[in-house]
Design a protein around this nucleic acid. Sequence first.
DNA 1: CGGCATCTTGCAAGCGTTTGCAAATAACTT
DNA 2: AAGTTATTTGCAAACGCTTGCAAGATGCCG
Lengths: 327, 327
Amino acid sequence: MSDVAELAGVSTSTVSRALRNPETVSLELRARVDAATASLGYVPNSMAGGLAASRTRTVGVIVPSLVNSFFSATIEAMAEVLNGDGYQILLGNSGYTIEREEALVNSFLSWSPAAIVLTGQMHSRITLQRLLNADLPIVEMWELGENPLDTLVGFSHRAAGRTAARHLLDTGRQRLAFIGAAPEHDRRATQRGAGFSEAVIEAGFPAPVCITMPERASVEGGGQLIAQLVTTYPRIDGVFFSNDVLMLGALFECQRRCIQVPQALGLIGFGDLDFAAWSQPTLTTIRPPRREIGTAVAEHLLHRFHHRAGVATTIDLGFDLVFRGST
Amino acid sequence: MSDVAELAGVSTSTVSRALRNPETVSLELRARVDAATASLGYVPNSMAGGLAASRTRTVGVIVPSLVNSFFSATIEAMAEVLNGDGYQILLGNSGYTIEREEALVNSFLSWSPAAIVLTGQMHSRITLQRLLNADLPIVEMWELGENPLDTLVGFSHRAAGRTAARHLLDTGRQRLAFIGAAPEHDRRATQRGAGFSEAVIEAGFPAPVCITMPERASVEGGGQLIAQLVTTYPRIDGVFFSNDVLMLGALFECQRRCIQVPQALGLIGFGDLDFAAWSQPTLTTIRPPRREIGTAVAEHLLHRFHHRAGVATTIDLGFDLVFRGST
DNA sequence: CGGCATCTTGCAAGCGTTTGCAAATAACTT
DNA sequence: AAGTTATTTGCAAACGCTTGCAAGATGCCG
């Protein structure tokens, strides 16, 4: 930076200001600094900057999993907006455990990030305490419950489950089931299942059968669970899957067993993944605002960074029922 | 840190050493420092550390896309190993363009990372120059070509294409086609296609038909391309897809058109994604070492970090042909 | 028991920015 | 023209660690 300062014939403080807050430097000097910066190919040292300012242009983001395209889409969208403003994403993968999340929050905090984004509202006591002490914007995404830490961006999974139930009932199914994965880890999937059951019961139908597996959602698991379901409860005529991936496995298993979808069995999933619109038959599903969540989080943060004010909000992005061939 | 030092009754330099290089500190002091650290809940400031040491426990990783589960699996595996040793991943998404890659490398370098990991061997001149100047370990992954920048971890896509060709020919198909996506961006997919054609021609068969679309691989695209293929070239009896996702779309389209797979048309893909083993019929594919690449990269880097020596190598992780129902 | 090599420890000088403060300059007012 | 206010600039003190160097402590040898 002192090289740039010398070349531009100014002090390093002016260079720093010209780079961070251009509006506080006269037009002429700003131009000279920009020219010097460009001609030297100067790249500021982020750590020195971060140390001096005790905050960085970095946002720590923690998701439960990457191989799951729900969160990848959210992250991609978030990164696009954030990068456009010079912010970097520090990505962490909690593997659906709050212990890993705690460790990640800890190490992220050591980078003085501009904000922290978490998935869901379930955190360890220590995480909460550290986060609150840190005094920075916190966003919890993909869930919409009580007592947000700060800002919440998501939608109601319970409502999504209810919508699925109503859809199956509306299309004439009466004996329903819910198929899910990793219930003890994926709280949101569990909420969808709960909303589903709730709505079925409210409508005066028998409580749906609930079949789950401890592992994460997979095509294989979906196939196995549906096999188990149709064997044990042959009269079931409608199934809600906590995840489209499970539904895909079930669809293949139905093909193998010559179970007619949607005639004999109606299937509705969650996620609206790529394949749902092009399978045979196409798959009815609930579309969560995958990219929208990322965009909304990023825009909210950018807003707060610019107008250094604490405007904690709750943003409900809703979801859509996508009615297709499987129901 | 001075609080910890005071509590432990030592100097800050001893605390620093006890934390970074425990073996250089006596057992007794090390224990006292650890106790003080724990009781104060001290978390070192990474930026101060990075600034002082002019390097951080950070690895910059750039992938073309996240929604693609090839790279997500690699990153997850890499992160597991790296996190275990206290390293953080700084993740960037180049969107398959070398301009974004250049920008990302630039901003990563401002964090003095311990290493940089890139996808593929195609980089802009400026990227190359900056990287070489930076004097840090560089890994190019998922590709295995000439003139590595430093270390290479991957497998031969050309060989994968050749294997696919031989498999289709071995199973009696004679009129082959290749279906791919985003050829001008995804160089590796193109290499697979080239290897495929090459092997078909070498075996004395007519050059395969090549159909591609400009967008990235999607289930929809796979369906459309196969529709186009069977309409234009009805006599084709074997198809190699640059990506399992395309193959899945094609499978559904074949179901819609009542084209018997594998009897009338043999399908082989690339990726061995989750669904390939459980679809109906199951899908023959080439399995790339998705997680293995991540693990190998991480272990290579850890090795270099520990024994501060420059051991650039090339690691060929190979691939597997997974023979299933679609051929 | 003295001399020498090996371990441990503390001192203090950075690392490359940011930013409060004050000085210098410019722009208005009356 | 003097006084007041607003704008622009530079100075220099942090920011919280790491690490080369030297001093002190310990162990080993003949």
